[in-house]
C-alpha cells in the first residue's frame, strides 16, 4: 500500500472557492455591462475591456516581478477591472482608463499584499484617483440610444432645481458612468449575488434606504428623494462596491453600520460638498473605518464569560 496521507481535520471542503465567488460577481455584472453597451455604445465596451485587460496584466506583471505566486486565476483582477470600467464614463480617454486600472491593481491592491489584504476598494480608489488627476470624469457621457440633448447629469439637474423622469433613471437613459445608470440591470445582479449567497443584502439595503430617507429629510419631497436615490452611482456602489469582502465589515451588524454610514456620508457630500456625487468618497471613508466597526461588532463567543 502506498503511503497514506495525514492531515488535520476536516477532510472534506465545500465546493465554493474564491474563484467561484469572483465568477459569480462577474456573472452578476453581465446585465449591467450589456445595458451599458446598449445605452452608451461600443465605446463603453472598449473602456471596460481596457480596464479589465490592464488590471489582469498589471497583476500578472506585479506577481512576476515580485516573484510571487500568480494570482490572476482567482479572477479578482477581472472583477476590479470590470468595476472600475463600469464606474467610468464612456467617453473617457482609453489611456486614462488604463492608468486608472494599473493604479487600482498595483498601488491599492498588490502593494498591500494582494487579495483580501487591501484596506481600500481598488476600483473605487482607482476612480477617485482619476477624478482628482484627470478631471475628465466630470464630463459625463450621454446615452447614444436616445436623443438626449441635456447637458447635465441628473444629480446636477436636481441640484439646480430641475426635474428628471423616473423611468429614465430606472432604465438608465441618463448621463453618467457606463455601469451606474441602468438600475434594473444592477438590481438583477444584486439578486443573483444574494441568491448565490455571495453577499448578504444588509449593506445594499441599508445604504440605499439611508440615502432615500436622508434625501427626503433634506428635500421634503418623496419624488425628488427617489430621483436622488436612483441617480449617480448609488446602486452599483451599494450592491457591488460596499459588499467587497476585504474592505467592509465581517458581521451583519457591522454591515448595517457600514451601509448607514456610507449612505449618510453620500447625502452629506451630495448636498453640501464640492462634488455633485459623493459615493466614492463615502465608501472610501467607511473602508477606513471598517476594521474599527469589526472590533465594535465582534460576536460574543457562545458561553464566553469574561476572564
Amino acid at each position: 500500500m502506498s503511503k497514506l496521507r495525514i492531515s488535520v481535520s476536516p477532510h472534506i471542503h465545500s465546493p465554493i472557492t474564491t474563484q467561484r465567488i469572483m465568477l459569480d460577481v462577474i456573472i452578476a455584472l453581465i446585465p449591467t455591462l450589456i445595458a451599458g453597451t446598449v445605452i452608451f455604445g461600443l465605446r463603453a465596451l472598449a473602456v471596460v475591456a481596457v480596464c479589465v485587460a490592464f488590471s489582469v496584466l498589471s497583476e500578472f506583471i506585479f506577481n512576476k516581478i515580485c516573484k510571487k505566486e500568480l494570482t490572476i486565476n482567482d479572477l479578482s483582477a477581472v472583477v476590479t477591472g470590470l468595476l472600475l470600467g463600469l464606474g467610468l464614463p464612456a467617453n473617457v480617454p482609453l489611456w486614462q482608463a488604463a492608468v486608472g486600472a494599473v493604479f487600482a491593481i498595483v498601488v491599492v491592491k498588490c502593494l498591500f499584499g494582494g487579495i483580501g489584504q487591501n484596506f481600500a476598494n481598488p476600483a473605487i480608489t482607482g476612480r477617485v484617483f482619476m477624478i482628482i488627476t484627470f478631471g475628465s470624469l466630470a464630463n459625463a457621457a450621454y446615452p447614444t440610444v436616445v436623443d438626449t440633448a441635456s447637458g447635465a447629469t441628473p444629480l446636477v439637474t436636481l441640484s439646480e432645481g430641475g426635474s428628471v423622469e423616473i423611468t429614465d433613471l430606472i432604465l438608465g437613459l441618463r448621463g453618467g458612468a457606463i455601469g451606474e445608470t441602468c438600475t434594473i440591470a444592477l438590481i438583477i445582479g444584486g439578486i443573483y449575488l444574494v441568491a448565490r449567497k455571495v453577499i448578504v443584502p444588509h449593506t445594499p439595503v441599508t445604504f440605499i434606504a439611508t440615502v432615500f430617507i436622508l434625501s427626503f429629510a433634506v428635500t421634503l419631497d418623496a419624488y425628488t428623494a427617489l430621483c436622488y436615490t436612483l441617480s449617480g452611482g448609488l446602486f452599483i456602489s451599494a450592491i457591488f462596491m460596499a459588499t467587497d469582502y476585504s474592505t467592509t465589515p465581517l458581521t451583519k451588524w457591522g454591515k448595517v453600520i457600514f451601509g448607514v454610514g456610507a449612505g449618510a456620508l453620500t447625502v452629506l457630500i451630495r448636498f453640501w460638498g464640492v462634488y455633485p456625487e459623493g459615493i466614492s468618497f463615502a465608501i472610501l471613508l467607511m473602508n477606513i473605518l471598517s476594521p474599527y466597526i469589526d472590533k465594535w461588532t465582534a460576536k460574543k463567543p457562545f458561553g464566553g464569560v469574561a476572564k
Binding site: 496521507r5 465567488i21 479578482s76 483580501g116 460576536k299 458561553g303
Partner: peptide
C-alpha cells in the same frame, strides 16, 4: 483525499458566520 490548495484569505467572513460557538 486531495487537499485543495490554500490561497490568501479574502476576508469573506464565512468562517465567522458559520462558527457554532460564535468565534472569529
Amino acid at each position: 483525499a486531495k487537499r485543495p490548495q490554500s490561497t490568501q484569505c479574502i476576508h469573506c467572513g464565512l468562517c465567522v458566520s458559520h462558527c457554532p460557538v460564535s468565534l472569529s
